[in-house]
């Protein structure tokens, strides 16, 4: 565990994909101001998988929205290195349902590729692949209102993956899913990640999920949110969700993170 003002980095000499320096965000709500983030410092290595946990309302979504270029910071800066200027840099999977009601599932998943003018046969191949992965084959031509909440969330995961960005920004993407589907999609995410080595910033409420997926878990403080601690997670890969949970080291680490988080939640 490091001190409060340290820069959280995977290792001192690794190349940063994302470099966050003294990042702060204050929203003004009429008369009052809400500081969502303050003094956030973080380096994420290319190809790294990090998870962020923190109490509700501590600014996790805000941080991700800044990384997705949807929100401008009020202090500090973010630097993101891009490998291929012609490829999409990042795709965000939103916490709430964001699948377009006016498009079929297939068109939703194809959205990013269509915008970029990828040719139809290529789109078809990619989209079919990810729809199958998300277990939505039978619903490819259905509209979102004909799907359950969890199915819609899987569709938005497929939409982000099919876009094939350098960075995946995932905001509690599996929170609405049942245990079985969650475990399946987690393994699928790990498989895709190990094949493509995308950089992933993954927000979750679940300490278990963070430990199963990531190389590093970052713990955020209560609002105003900043990074409070980091935990290196070096369970060997490929990981299998249920094997990992049986590992005693898994439980120890989980308890440590939980102790930290409890202070934050209780102190709010």
């Amino acid at each position: 565990m490091l001190t409060d003002n340290a820069v959280f980095a995977a290792s001192r000499d690794s190349v940063s994909k994302i470099r966050i320096r003294d990042l702060g965000k204050t929203f003004s709500l009429g008369q009052t101001e809400v500081t969502a983030l303050t003094k956030v410092n973080l380096d994420v290595t290319a190809g790294e998988f990090i998870c962020i946990v923190g109490p509700s309302g501590c600014g996790k979504t805000t941080l991700l929205r800044i990384l997705a270029e949807l929100e401008a910071p009020t202090q500090g800066e973010v630097l993101i290195a891009r490998d291929d200027p012609s490829a999409p840099l990042s795709s965000m999977i939103f916490q709430e349902s964001s699948i377009f009601p006016w498009m079929t599932i297939r068109d939703n998943v194809a959205y990013g590729l269509r915008l970029r003018g990828v040719d139809d046969t290529q789109i078809n191949k990619v989209v079919t692949h990810f729809i199958k992965l998300a277990g939505l084959e039978r619903f490819a031509d259905a509209y979102p209102h004909q799907l359950s909440g969890g199915m819609k969330q899987r569709a938005s995961v497929a939409r982000a993956f099919s876009n094939d960005p350098e960075i995946l920004l995932m905001d509690e993407p599996f929170a609405a899913l049942d245990e079985q589907n969650k475990a399946l999609l987690q393994e699928e995410l790990l498989r895709i990640w190990s094949e493509t080595r995308k950089t992933v910033v993954f927000i979750t409420h679940s300490i278990d999920e963070a430990l199963v997926l990531s190389d590093r878990v970052l713990v955020m403080s209560a609002r105003p949110g900043r990074l409070k601690a980091e935990f290196k997670v070096d369970f060997p890969r490929p990981r299998r969700v249920y094997d990992l949970k049986a590992d005693p080291a898994f439980g120890r680490m989980g308890r440590e993170i939980w102790t930290l988080l409890r202070e934050e939640v209780a102190g709010q």
């Binding site: 795709s91 939103f94 709430e96 964001s98 377009f100 959205y111 990013g112 915008l115």
Partner: peptide, 20 residues
């Protein structure tokens, strides 16, 4: 949120009109 998605996918103004 739909406009956010479009902007995250780097939709142009024109594409935002037509698709969103």
């Amino acid at each position: 949120i739909y406009l956010d998605v479009a902007s995250n996918f780097k939709a142009s103004r024109w594409q935002t009109y037509w698709t969103i």
